[in-house]
């Protein structure tokens, strides 16, 4: 696509994702206040914070499921504006996994995976199915390919959702609380897949409260509260001696049980 080529003068040091002074309001409510974040290619970032801190809103702005009102967002060198072409170009490069999985219930698992490659990437059906089966094997459920999402457990559905995003061969993966809607015994199977992805060098931004996952995988931790980025630090430093009082309080609450 022309947009991608002209708007993508990528240099080595340029961040994959960059938010500059991003602000967002819901009516009078100021959800995001001057957010500045840069994520390099291959970097894994974990975003945490109390509920209502704006962390989900922030990552939803990155593929424009939410619109920001002030500031700039760049993904792979393309600026997110109202321009539909830019938005679609960015959405092709950015995969997203939702808390509620959001699989398409009227399609089989295989059809869920091949839908976007066939219709957006114009991949031949046979190639798309081959790719889909590879990815289903990677998330360890190739035997479920012909079932409908409603027949799978939550953990299986979330793994299908991850595979569905990977089918588009994204540059970046966004995870919006991927394990929050899961029963405890299913959380591990999803986290294992995510750890595997991280080890392969995928650029990832995860909103999650799974601090064990954050410790093993994250290159950097972002703590948000009341619409602001309060602290950014490598996980060792972040957990060992958080600088801000709010971070300390949050960590004491989340790690105490």
């Amino acid at each position: 696509m022309a947009v991608q080529e002209s708007a993508k003068p990528q240099t080595a040091g340029q961040p994959m994702i960059e938010l500059r002074n991003v602000n967002k309001w819901y009516g009078d409510f100021h959800v995001l206040k001057d957010i500045n974040i840069g994520v390099r290619k291959g970097e894994r970032v974990v975003v945490c914070g109390p509920s209502g801190s704006g962390k989900s809103t922030m990552i939803r702005c990155i593929n424009r499921l939410e619109e920001h009102q002030k500031g700039q967002i760049f993904v792979d060198g393309i600026e997110l504006t109202g321009d539909v072409k830019h938005v679609e170009a960015i959405r092709r490069e950015v995969g997203m996994v939702f808390q509620q999985f959001n699989l398409f219930p009227h399609l089989t698992v295989l059809q869920n995976l091949t839908l976007a490659p066939i219709w957006v990437r114009k991949m031949p059906k046979k190639d798309a199915e081959e790719l889909a089966m590879q990815l289903l094997a990677r998330v360890k459920i190739p035997e479920q390919a012909n079932k409908y999402p409603g027949q799978l457990s939550g953990g299986q559905q979330q793994r299908v959702a991850i595979a569905r995003s990977l089918c588009m061969k994204p540059e970046v993966m966004l995870f919006d609380e991927p394990t929050s809607a899961l029963d405890p015994e299913m959380i591990k199977e999803v986290l294992d897949v995510m750890v595997g992805l991280a080890q392969e060098g995928m650029t990832m931004i995860c909103v999650t409260h799974e601090m064990g996952f954050a410790r093993t995988v994250a290159d950097s931790m972002i703590f948000m509260d009341q619409g602001q980025v309060v602290e950014v630090a490598p996980p060792k430093e972040f957990f060992a001696n958080p600088k801000s009082e709010r971070t300390k309080l949050f960590l004491s609450q989340i790690l105490s049980h």
Binding site: E88, R91, M96, N102, L115, V120
Partner: peptide, 20 residues
Amino acid sequence: GQYEAADALGLGYWRKTWLV
């Protein structure tokens, strides 16, 4: 969530509407 998932895959309005 169905609209959002289709959007996030980059389907665009018409494909999202007809396919999902």
